[in-house]
Design a protein around this nucleic acid. Sequence first.
DNA 1: CCATGTGTGTAGTGTTGACTGCACACTCTA
DNA 2: TAGAGTGTGCAGTCAACACTACACACATGG
Lengths: 117, 117
Amino acid sequence: MDAFGSYLRERREARRASDRSYSLRQLATRVGIEPSYLSRIERGAESPPSEATIRRLAAELEEDEDVLLALAGKVSSDLQDAIRRRPALFAQLIRQLAELPDHAVLRLVREVRDGDW
Amino acid sequence: MDAFGSYLRERREARRASDRSYSLRQLATRVGIEPSYLSRIERGAESPPSEATIRRLAAELEEDEDVLLALAGKVSSDLQDAIRRRPALFAQLIRQLAELPDHAVLRLVREVRDGDW
DNA sequence: CCATGTGTGTAGTGTTGACTGCACACTCTA
DNA sequence: TAGAGTGTGCAGTCAACACTACACACATGG
């Protein structure tokens, strides 16, 4: 049940296979946290770190920030800001989309992207 | 700059004009918090309460939960859940919509509502 | 006039979030 | 075989969140 930690470890070790600088210690140092802290996070002995730290981890591992944040049970603060600016509208839309299958949402994304909105 | 508190007070007093049971004390009691706490919140001397408490306040005042949460700088947890289930997809969509005007988003909401999705 | 209700000031509480810092045991490798 | 690097255990910090508890002063209406 610790999606975040195990995913992180898995990703780091994958990278480490081709780049020795991806040891837990070195990554932690680059990201600016204590190695023991990262160790506990990877093993799920500690809850995921802050949004800022997750962002730095994502950058270092070249992972999608939103996905990593999601695994940590969080939602990017800029998305939250966008929703907060028009709460009624976005709330309605998101609740509707929550019940639609992926492909429908994807279709919508595309339509908005290259539509005449 | 204390949108939440002043809005709350304003709404409560509006209701109180026609219903004497909307005193700070009585509302606080119905909602299950200490009057002094609600007092500090309404005056902005304290940051907004938890999502659960905001929900109860919204119910009692017949206000839109999402709007009240937004004023408190929060986003409903069920919306966050929806986003977390498909982070890449939703992140992309919301960032796109953040730059569109209200009417465009509204049009989208309608289209999804009564479209053949 | 006093009992009841009103809002508010001050102080204190338990819990969680987000970490640091150091010591330890193990493993390579030069 | 000493030294550097590896992951980890344990203890502790510091601020914020989300509140409670109680005392106070005012007012008001029966």
